[in-house]
Design a protein around this nucleic acid. Structure first.
Length: 577
DNA sequence: GCCGTTTTCGGCCCGACTGTTTTCAGTCG
C-alpha cells in the first residue's frame, strides 16, 4: 500500500464520519492526516519500517495504528465497520454540488437513497418535496447538480486555464473601477490542474464590477451572484469565481483567497495562539479588535510573525514549519535559467529549422540551447539514423561559427529500448555534448521490467538527463508502472539529472516527485521539449512545477553556466583514446 | 483524533451565499 492509497482510505473515513455527523474536529484530523500523507515524499512503508509514523504531522497513536493495520492486512477494520453502516452510494451523493453530508444523510435515512441514479429518479418524480427544508428550488438545484456530476467535472490543466484566466484579468483591469486585480486560488499556486479560476479585485464600487463580470461574452451561465462574490461558468467549461473587496483588504483577501484551504487553517491556528484573528479583511487583535494588517500580503504574514511564504508552497506541506524555523527555500525563478536542454527541429518532428530554433533561443537571452532530436526507434516522430545524427552534429558545429553568442549543444533524445539499452551506440553518444534519454515505446512493460529498463539506461556513462520520467499525459495517459524510488536511487547513484518536462500536457516529473528528487540530492533539468517555437515559452510552467517542488537555483542544471554544465556532463565519461 | 515556550485537557479558522426561514442551517471555499 502506498501513501496515496492510505490517504484515500482516510478521506473515505472522513466522508463517512461527516454523514454520521461525528465530531467535526475528528473529521478534520482524518482529512489533515490524509493530506499530509499525500504530500509526504517518503514511502509510507519505509516510514513505518523505521517506526516513524507518529512523527508525521497530524498522525498520532491511533492513526499510526490504523496505517500499520492497513500495511499489514491490506484493510482498515474501522473503515470496514463504517462502510457496513453507510452504503458507498451515499458518500457519492456528496459529489453533487449543493449536496453535503447533512443532505446525503437525510436522503438516505428518509428515502433510502443510495445512489445518484436513485436520487435523480426520485427528484424527477417529485418525491423529494415534503422532506424537511426541501422545496422546489432545492429539487431544481439537486437536478442541476446531478447534471454537473454526470458531465464529469474534470479539472482543467494549468496550461489551458492560465491563458483563459489572463484574458479575464486583461479585460477587467481596463475598468476604471478596478483598483487592483490578481489571480488567486490553485491557479496562483500553479497546481498542475485546477477546478476553477479564482479572481480577486479591489474596488470601492463592487456592484459595477459584478455587473460587468457576469455579463462578459465569456460567460455561459451565472451560477451565483451576491454583492461582492460571483461564480460563473466560462464558455470553455470551467467555473470562475470573482471576489471584490475594499482596497485596504487586498493583502488579506489575496492571502485568504489563494489558499490552500489547509494552509490557511494552519496560518490562522498559528495566529490564534498569538491572540490574533485572520480573515479576508485583515489581521485583528483578538482582545481589542484592532486591525493590524491587511493591505499587503507580505504585511499579513509578517503581522502574524511569519516571513512571506510564496504561493506555490502554500499546501500545508511543511511550509509553515519551515517559515517559522527560517528555512524556507529561495525558490528559483524563470530568469535563473540559462538555457533549454530539450528541443526538436525539423530534422525529426519539430516544425522549424535548426537556425530558427537557435535564433529563438538567442532572443530569449539564453546562453545555450540544445538540439535533441529523436533517435531511429522513434519512427512515428521521424527519428534519425546514426549517420544522420553525425551529419546533424557536423551541421551544428558549423553553425556555431555563425552564432558565436550562443552555444549550440549537440544532443539527442535517444530512445531507451525495451531491454534498457540505448538506441544509439556509445560511439555516437560520445560525439554529443548532452544526451537526453526517454521512453517512447513498450509502455505496458510490467513494473519490474520497466524499472530495470530505466535503471540500466541511467547506468550508461554517456547518458545525462532522463526525459519525462513517468510518461504520463495529464488526463490522457497514466504514468507507466515503475518503481520511482528505484529510479531516483539510480539517478543519484549514477549522477544523472531527471527532467521536469514543461509541456502543459506532461509536467513530468510532477511537483511531488521533483521534491522527492531534491531531498535525495538528485539534480533536475527544466526543459520545454519544444516542437514549435512558441513552446519555448512553456519554460514558465516547468518553473512553476519546480517552485512547487521547493527547488532552488542550485538544484537545476540549466541554471548553471555553460562550463559548469559541460564539466558535469563529461566527468562520468570513459576517457577515449 | 491531534496537540502543547500558555495547556496532557480543552481547545481546534473564518466568512459569503442560498434557500428556507422569521433567525438559521447547510454548503462552499
Amino acid at each position: 500500500m502506498r501513501n496515496l492509497e492510505i490517504a484515500t482510505l482516510f478521506h473515505e473515513i472522513a466522508d463517512l464520519l461527516e454523514i454520521k455527523d461525528d465530531n467535526a474536529f475528528k473529521i478534520r484530523a482524518y482529512r489533515r492526516a490524509a493530506m499530509n500523507l499525500e504530500s509526504l515524499t517518503e514511502e509510507i512503508e519505509a516510514v513505518a519500517a523505521r517506526g516513524g509514523l507518529a512523527d508525521i504531522a497530524g498522525i498520532g497513536k491511533d492513526l499510526a495504528a490504523k496505517i500499520r493495520q492497513a500495511l499489514e492486512t491490506g484493510r482498515m477494520a474501522y473503515l470496514d465497520e463504517l462502510r457496513a453502516e453507510i452504503p458507498r452510494g451515499v458518500v457519492e451523493l456528496m459529489a453533487i454540488p449543493g449536496v453535503g453530508p447533512k443532505t446525503a444523510k437525510l436522503l438516505f435515512q428518509q428515502l433510502q437513497v443510495d445512489s445518484v441514479e436513485t436520487l435523480e429518479s426520485l427528484a424527477l418524480q417529485g418525491k423529494l418535496l415534503g422532506l424537511p427544508g426541501v422545496k422546489q428550488k432545492t429539487v431544481d438545484n439537486i437536478l442541476k447538480g446531478i447534471q454537473v456530476v454526470k458531465a464529469g467535472r474534470e479539472r482543467m490543466p494549468l496550461g489551458r486555464a492560465l491563458p483563459l484566466a489572463h484574458e479575464l484579468v486583461r479585460i477587467l483591469e481596463q475598468l476604471p473601477e478596478v483598483r487592483q486585480i490578481s489571480l488567486a486560488g490553485s491557479l496562483r499556486r500553479m497546481r498542475e490542474t485546477v477546478k476553477d479560476v479564482d479572481l480577486l479585485v479591489t474596488s470601492a464600487q463592487p456592484a459595477k464590477i459584478m455587473a460587468v463580470f457576469t455579463s462578459l461574452p465569456q460567460v455561459s451561465e451565472v451560477l451565483l451572484q451576491g454583492e461582492t462574490k460571483a461564480t460563473i461558468r466560462h464558455r470553455e467549461g470551467i467555473q470562475v469565481d470573482l471576489r471584490v473587496v475594499e482596497p485596504d483588504c487586498f493583502g488579506a483577501a489575496l492571502q485568504y483567497f489563494t489558499g490552500s484551504k489547509t494552509h490557511n487553517i494552519r496560518v490562522r491556528e498559528f495566529a490564534v495562539r498569538k491572540g490574533l484573528k485572520v480573515s479576508e479583511y485583515g489581521v485583528f487583535q483578538e482582545a481589542t479588535g484592532t486591525r493590524i494588517a491587511g493591505a499587503g500580503e507580505e504585511e499579513v504574514y509578517n503581522a502574524i510573525g511569519l516571513p512571506y511564504i510564496p504561493p506555490e508552497l502554500r499546501e500545508d506541506a511543511g511550509e509553515v514549519e519551515a517559515a517559522l524555523e527560517g528555512r524556507l527555500p529561495h525558490l528559483l525563478t524563470l530568469s535563473d535559467l540559462r538555457g533549454d536542454l530539450h528541443a526538436h527541429t525539423n530534422w525529426t518532428d519539430g516544425h522549424h529549422t535548426l537556425e530558427a530554433l537557435i535564433e529563438a533561443a538567442q532572443r530569449k537571452g539564453y546562453e545555450y540551447i540544445i538540439v535533441s532530436d529523436h533517435s531511429r526507434a522513434a519512427t512515428v516522430a521521424g527519428g534519425i539514423s546514426e549517420e544522420k545524427l553525425l551529419e546533424q552534429i557536423g551541421r551544428i558545429r558549423a553553425l556555431s561559427k555563425k552564432y558565436p553568442k550562443i552555444r549550440i549543444l549537440a544532443g539527442s533524445e535517444c530512445d531507451i529500448l525495451a531491454d534498457g539499452s540505448l538506441d544509439f551506440p556509445d560511439r555516437a553518444l560520445a560525439q554529443l555534448d548532452i544526451v537526453v534519454c526517454a521512453i517512447h515505446s513498450r509502455f505496458k512493460q510490467d513494473r519490474a521490467g520497466m524499472t530495470a529498463r530505466i535503471v540500466k539506461a541511467l547506468s550508461n556513462p554517456y547518458v545525462h538527463i532522463f526525459a519525462h520520467p513517468t510518461g504520463r499525459l495529464i488526463g490522457e495517459r497514466d504514468p507507466y508502472d515503475v518503481d520511482m524510488e528505484a529510479v531516483l536511487a539510480a539517478a543519484r547513484q549514477y549522477g544523472k539529472a531527471l527532467e521536469i518536462n514543461a509541456q502543459p500536457s506532461r509536467l513530468d516529473l510532477n511537483d511531488h516527485h521533483a521534491r522527492q528528487a531534491k531531498e535525495l540530492g538528485v539534480k533536475l533539468a527544466i526543459s520545454t521539449d519544444t516542437h514549435v517555437l512558441d513552446q519555448l515559452d512553456n519554460m514558465a510552467l516547468g518553473v512553476a512545477v519546480a517552485r512547487r517542488a521547493w527547488l532552488e537555483k542550485a538544484d537545476v542544471i540549466n541554471t548553471w553556466p555553460l562550463d559548469k554544465l559541460l564539466t558535469w556532463a563529461h566527468k562520468s565519461r570513459p576517457k577515449v583514446a
